[in-house]
């Protein structure tokens, strides 16, 4: 198994930490992982993205030009990365702020309205975990129990009381993600 993922959105949406938790979940499952962020000023606003690779075998390049899955959380990232999903690949996006929806017909498109759901759940900070849940529903590359272990590893101990809340968000994401018909 090998899954090459790009997660892209705004700085502050938890893009990098979502990728980190996913990578840690892969480590917990004894797989090879790489996590390559866009770093620097992006982290303080603007677009941020991270490439995560989870594989049974040794990983060659941490930098890619096409992806099995793109998780897209703003319009700029849609414009940039829709074309870079492999044919037959998967695109997952949050509809919030999206004006130009995906148009490719050779990939499977899923929508998850995680921004809206996070506001409804009154926990904006678990936004990225809702998205992660949705992703794992359609691409179960790691087991949920390993995601929880990954969360424990990547969160400092003083934040461990937040794990049940994050678990709830992951489960909610799994419920609300749905496949989209791409219109011509």
């Amino acid at each position: 198994m090998k899954e090459e993922i790009i997660i892209a959105g705004f700085g502050g949406q938890g893009v990098l930490s979502m990728g980190k938790i996913l990578a840690y979940s892969g480590v917990m499952q004894d797989m090879e992982v790489s996590w390559m962020p866009s770093y620097g000023p992006e982290m303080r606003g603007g677009t941020a993205n991270v490439t995560v690779i989870i594989s049974d075998d040794k990983i060659s390049s941490p930098i890619l030009h096409e992806y099995d899955t793109a998780i897209i959380l703003n319009q700029q990232s849609m414009d940039k990365f829709e074309a870079h999903v492999k044919p037959g690949g998967t695109l997952i996006y949050d509809g919030n702020g999206i004006t130009h929806h995906p148009t490719r017909k050779d990939i499977t498109v899923y929508r998850i309205d995680a921004t809206e759901e996070a506001a409804r759940m009154r926990s904006v900070k678990t936004f990225n975990m809702i998205v992660l849940g949705g992703y794992l529903k359609v691409k179960p590359v790691v087991k949920i129990e390993n995601v929880i272990k990954g969360l424990k590893k990547s969160l400092p101990e003083r934040h461990h009381h937040l794990i049940p809340m994050n678990e709830k968000a992951i489960n909610r994401g799994m419920e609300i993600i749905h496949e989209m018909e791409v219109e011509a």
Binding site: K20, A23, V27, V33, W35, M36, Y39, P62
Partner: peptide, 10 residues
Amino acid sequence: DGIIGQMMEK
């Protein structure tokens, strides 16, 4: 370089 410095691996 910035890639090897910033990327995370096992």
